[in-house]
């Protein structure tokens, strides 16, 4: 049998931990919207009161065959496979930016389907493989 003092300390600790976990759970729940690093096109579509003057981030996939590169402007479509948003950007893009890859655009919404970005971040996925393997996979897909 454990001594009484030890039991007392253990129960005190258990109660404190439980209270903090519950507290942090509610803090995170109420902060949920702010923790999101970016919004998806669906989030923007469903949002009723958007502040068009505030900088926001929009994220998703670059839609296939949507990338148009002109001299001073890059245009593409971000999709989350339900909704889409048109992006216009002028500047340099990171190495990993390409079609059918994850992307996060930082800038201002003009309306619910048009977004002017002043910064583009590329989102990497969790797949790592050597280039030869990717070639083989491409051939197989064809």
């Amino acid at each position: 049998m454990l001594p009484k003092k030890v039991k007392k300390r253990a129960s005190l600790l258990a109660i404190t931990l439980l209270v903090t976990v519950i507290g942090i759970f509610f803090i995170l729940k109420s902060l949920n919207k702010n923790i999101l690093y970016f919004k998806s096109p669906t989030d923007i579509k469903n949002n009723q009161n958007i502040n068009f003057d505030k900088k926001i981030r929009v994220g998703g996939m670059v839609k296939k065959d949507s990338l148009i590169i002109k001299e001073e402007e890059i245009k593409f479509i971000i999709t989350d496979f339900n909704n889409e948003i048109n992006i216009s950007f002028s500047g340099t893009v990171p190495n990993l930016f390409s079609e059918e890859k994850g992307v996060v655009a930082e800038g201002k919404l003009q309306d619910k389907t048009f977004f002017i970005a002043d910064r583009i971040l590329a989102k990497h996925d969790e797949n790592y493989m050597p280039p030869e393997l990717k070639d083989i996979m491409k051939k197989n897909a064809k």
Partner: peptide, 23 residues
């Protein structure tokens, strides 16, 4: 849980990892 810029875990406790064996 949240949308993050950081990619999800490649090596999972259960299931196959998405990193090629040579890496």
């Amino acid at each position: 849980w949240w949308n993050t810029l950081h990619q999800p875990a490649s090596i999972k406790l259960t299931g196959e990892s998405s990193i090629h064996p040579s890496m």
